[in-house]
């Protein structure tokens, strides 16, 4: 039925992941007090992406899924980013 034995994550590892996520949340909130100018959006989005990657990798078990599943997740995000960029080819140069 199952092709491979499912990986069982320990409670402790989940707690660790949560700690990392809370830490990153703290960082984003603190960042609002510092004026980074044009980089504010970039840094904020970067932190959010790191958080998203952590959730995907551990909470959503991507680390233990097949390589194919990982690739389609990456591909889907990449496709969205590409669509965003192509749309902005219009808005930036108008």
């Amino acid at each position: 039925m199952d092709e491979h034995k499912p990986h069982i994550s320990s409670y402790l590892s989940h707690a660790r992941v949560l700690t990392a996520l809370l830490f990153l949340t703290l960082i984003t909130v603190l960042l609002t007090w510092i004026d980074l100018g044009v980089f504010t959006i970039a840094v904020t989005l970067l932190v959010a992406s790191v958080k998203a990657t952590i959730v995907l990798t551990w909470f959503m078990h991507l680390k233990f899924e097949s390589a194919f599943t990982r690739w389609i997740v990456i591909g889907t995000f990449a496709l969205f980013v590409l669509i965003l960029i192509v749309t902005f080819v219009d808005y930036f140069f108008r």
Partner: peptide, 23 residues
């Protein structure tokens, strides 16, 4: 269902800074 719940979380991870923090 867990995957779905994490997605809800994932979306919020982006919504939160975009709506509340970027002042």
């Amino acid at each position: 269902s867990g995957l779905y719940w994490h997605l809800v979380d994932l979306i919020w991870i982006f919504l939160f800074p975009l709506l509340y923090l970027l002042t």
